[in-house]
């Protein structure tokens, strides 16, 4: 062990034990690694290994019948991008819209639960999580019934002119709600809403109400108090919630299949059918990797922009 690391671990120990310098406890050095080991092992087996397999799969050529051989040909990535860039872009767009929608719906709700619900807090949190007791698929299928042309929601949307508005902004193609961009985005919003609410709740629950009082005392109107104190202090929750919503929503294939049409196909749907129906494994693997990298780039840019590290 080089000298500097001995010194730094000594310093850490000194800090941990309240500033009294003690000789470094050799015995304790392996404990952090022992604690990390099970998690690292899990990640190695179930994340790193499949990723490597996936990457190598994308660089193979052949067919299911004839078997695959590794060629290391990166051309497949160019082909995949050329062929499926609209679905990729669309996935990002829908997911971003759903994330924004979920944020707008979740923030007031989370705020209410955290700050005003009092003894109903527990019950309301259970209700937020309650949809998880049924399967994702069933919930999405239920939305087909909810949005069906003969249903009450569609009727209400028609009578209030909402369908006209949706058509005007090209979220729907005709005066039905189902099988449209609108339905897909609404489905995504609904399905990932709890992932937005819970981190927001955690953040807002920790918010010291005395800070909001102090803002009011310092001449901030309630709105200014929100903008300058509540909102910035809840940003860690906003960032966590938007990530937890945006990332899975981008790769989702259930909502676009069940609630959309041929013009709303998302990239998850493409990967799904390439893997399981077309059986073009290399293309499917390449698309998976492209999606992974795309999300990584978008997310890291976003997190850097949000600058949450300053908040902690």
């Amino acid at each position: 062990m080089p000298a500097w690391s001995t010194w730094s671990s000594m310093a850490e120990l000194a800090v941990l034990s309240g500033g009294t310098a003690r000789p470094p406890a050799r015995r304790a050095n392996w404990v952090p690694y022992a604690l990390l080991a099970p998690g690292l092992l899990w990640l190695a087996i179930f994340f790193v290994a499949p990723m490597v397999t996936l990457l190598s799969q994308s660089l193979q050529e052949g067919s299911v019948e004839a078997g695959y051989t590794f060629t290391g040909n990166w051309q497949i990535y160019v082909d995949a991008l050329q062929k499926y860039w609209p679905q990729l872009l669309r996935s990002v767009g829908y997911s971003a819209a759903a994330t924004l929608g979920a944020l707008v719906l979740a923030y007031p709700l989370a705020y209410y639960i955290a700050q005003k619900a009092g003894r109903w807090k527990g019950l309301m949190l259970v209700l937020v999580v309650a949809p998880f007791f049924t399967s994702f698929l069933i919930r999405t299928l239920a939305w087909r019934t909810i949005l069906s042309d003969t249903g009450a929601v569609a009727g209400l949307a028609r009578s209030t002119g909402l369908t006209d508005v949706l058509q005007a902004v090209a979220l729907t193609g005709n005066d039905s709600l189902l099988s449209s961009k609108f339905a897909v985005i609404a489905g995504l919003t609904y399905n990932f809403l709890p992932f937005m609410i819970l981190p927001l709740y955690a953040s807002l629950d920790r918010l010291d109400r005395r800070l909001v009082e102090a803002a009011g005392d310092l001449y901030a109107t309630p709105w200014q108090g929100f903008r300058h104190v509540t909102w910035p202090l809840s940003l860690p929750g906003v960032v966590a919630g938007t990530l937890l919503t945006f990332i899975p929503a981008t790769g989702d294939f259930i909502n676009s299949r069940l609630l959309g049409n041929t013009q709303t196909v998302m990239i998850g749907q493409v990967i799904d059918s390439q893997f399981l129906r077309v059986l073009d494994y290399p293309l499917a693997a390449a698309l998976s990797f492209i999606l992974l990298v795309l999300i990584l780039v978008l997310v890291s840019t976003y997190v850097r922009r949000a600058g949450t590290e300053e908040l902690v």
């Binding site: 010291d208 800070l211 009082e213 009011g216 300058h228 910035p232 202090l233």
Partner: peptide
């Protein structure tokens, strides 16, 4: 309302804005 009063408070917890 509090923000309309020309009165300011030094809170027991200080309530400084941490961000």
């Amino acid at each position: 309302r509090p923000h309309q009063r020309n009165v300011n408070t030094v809170f027991q917890s200080y309530a400084l804005f941490p961000h």
